[in-house]
């Protein structure tokens, strides 16, 4: 089974403060063909799909999206504007 490496870019409340600083991104290796939902489960990240924008290549995608090698996946807790 081939693998792909992706980066999850965490926004606002999904960023985690640690003694060594803020965790803003996570690199993750996953089996080619798995979905974002699978990857989030492996990483232990809980999101509400309704309230989170998942953005890859500047496009909204769903949790069923199957990442490609090198994808940067933005997990953005949705807000309506500023």
């Amino acid at each position: 089974m081939s693998e792909v490496e992706v980066t999850f870019q965490l926004h606002t409340i999904l960023q985690v403060q640690t003694p060594n600083g803020r965790i803003t991104a996570l690199r993750h290796r996953m089996v080619n063909g798995q979905s974002i939902e699978d990857a989030l489960q492996d990483l232990g990240i809980q999101i509400s799909p309704e309230e989170t924008l998942i953005v890859v290549n500047r496009q909204n995608v769903g949790v069923d999206y199957q990442p490609k090698d090198g994808d940067v996946i933005h997990l953005i807790p949705a807000i309506a504007g500023g």
């Binding site: 870019q9 926004h11 606002t12 953005v55 500047r58 953005i76 807000i79 504007g81 500023g82």
Partner: peptide, 15 residues
Amino acid sequence: DYGTNAMPGMSDGFG
């Protein structure tokens, strides 16, 4: 937590 300045990452994320 972030005020309205929570937005830059989202706006930039869409280019």
